[in-house]
Structure formats: C-alpha cells, structure tokens
Amino acid sequence: MGVLSLGQVLSLLESETKMLKTHTMPASAAKEEEPEPGDLIEIFRGRYQHWTVYIGGGYIVHLVSNSEIHSLGVSSTVLGGSVSGQVKKEKLKDVVNKDDWKISNIHDNKWDPRPKQEIVKEALSMVGKDMEYSVTELNCEHFATERRYGKALSLQVLKAAEAVVRVGAATILDSTASGDMSSSPSVQYSP
C-alpha cells in the first residue's frame, strides 16, 4: 500500500462520510419531519457534517468558523491549531440551503438529553459570542452535543482519527511485509 497521498486520505474520509450518510433525507423530505426545540440537526456538506441546535420557530444556533475554506469544504484548522469562530442564530432553511440534513440526536441511547428548555436557553445565551474554533477540540459538533448532553463530543473527529490510524497501520504492515523497514517505527534501547 505504501504512503497515501493527501488526495487518497481525503478520498478515504469521503467514503467514511458516505457510510454515515446512508440514513439522511433530502432537504425536501427532511422538511416534512419537524424538529423539536433542543434537537440536534446534522447537515451534510460533502466531506464533513455541520451540526446545529434547533431552538424552535425554524431557527437554529450553531458555532461557525470565521475562516472556512469553502473550496475544500473544511476549516483551515484541519492543518492544526485554532481560528476565531462565532455562535450564530439563523434560519435552518438558510443554513441548510440545498444540502441534505436530518434530526440527529445520536447519543440519546447513551446519555439522557438535558431538558429542552435548558438546551434552548443555553444555546440562545451564547448567540453572538466569539469563541475559539478548532476542528479537533471545539467544532460545531462539539458545540451542539455539549448543549444537548452536557458533553462535548465529535464523532467525525473520532472517525477521522480512526481512519488515520488505520492508514498508518496499513502502511507499517505493508512496509514490514515487503521488507522495507525504512518507514516503520524503530525502537532503540540503550543500556
């Protein structure tokens, strides 16, 4: 297998995203299922998902990065570090645009959601707040899950990390099997 190019890694992540997307609704169909205040909304943007908190009346609250690279569909923080971000209140239909979306309270089977009024009140209290945005530590999914469950978690970050680990393991195994140990990690002991 060897070392993968950035394009191959992005392709691998895209295939992972497609697997996650199997239970989505087209924007037109999703509108038939009305979200309730406190629900998490997952919007499919190609290589990543954007997460929001539905607050009622057709509005959502979400954390957005101020420096998205739209041509890549990912934040510039994918290279590391953080950038400035802001919590915004917007119409769901304006944020979704033509993308697919779904109600995605994905951790309800593991954690009890906080009361709807608390979720909405906390989300609204953060509107307009400037925040540090980091793809790996505080992205829109972390923001949304923390409002609903009181725990910040991003499954897409975990899945991306898992993909990187799998690629690294495959590279090591491939180089070991071929006898090329130059890219394999070495352990040195000193007496």
Rank of each mutant, 00 (worst) to 15 (best):
M1H: 02
G2A: 07
G2C: 04
G7L: 05
Q8M: 02
E16N: 06
K18I: 03
K21D: 12
T22D: 04
H23E: 09
A27V: 09
A27H: 03
S28I: 08
K31R: 06
K31M: 04
K31W: 00
E32A: 15
P35R: 01
P35I: 14
E36A: 11
P37W: 02
G38V: 15
D39Y: 13
D39F: 14
L40A: 07
E42V: 05
E42A: 11
I43V: 15
F44T: 14
R45W: 10
G46W: 10
V53Y: 12
I55H: 07
G57M: 11
G58S: 09
I60S: 06
H62S: 05
L63I: 05
V64S: 04
N66H: 08
S67V: 08
H70D: 10
S71A: 14
V74L: 15
G80F: 01
G81L: 06
V83P: 00
S84I: 02
Q86A: 11
V87A: 12
E90R: 13
L92F: 04
L92M: 07
D94R: 14
V95F: 10
V96D: 12
N97D: 13
D100A: 09
D100Y: 03
I103Y: 02
I103Q: 01
I106E: 14
H107S: 01
H107L: 08
D108Y: 01
N109C: 07
K110C: 10
D112Q: 15
P113S: 12
I119P: 04
I119C: 07
K121T: 12
K121F: 01
L124D: 07
S125W: 02
S125V: 03
G128F: 04
K129T: 15
E132A: 12
Y133V: 07
S134I: 01
N139W: 06
C140E: 05
C140H: 03
F143S: 10
F143L: 13
E146N: 13
Y149T: 07
G150S: 09
K151P: 01
K151Y: 15
A152P: 00
S154E: 03
L155D: 12
Q156P: 14
K159R: 11
A161N: 11
E162M: 04
V164D: 11
R166W: 01
R166S: 05
V167H: 01
G168V: 08
G168W: 10
G168S: 15
A169F: 06
L173T: 10
D174H: 15
A177H: 07
S178M: 06
G179S: 04
D180Q: 10
S182K: 13
S183F: 00
S184G: 07
P185H: 02
S186T: 14
S186I: 13
Q188H: 15
Y189E: 13
Y189S: 12
S190V: 10
P191D: 09
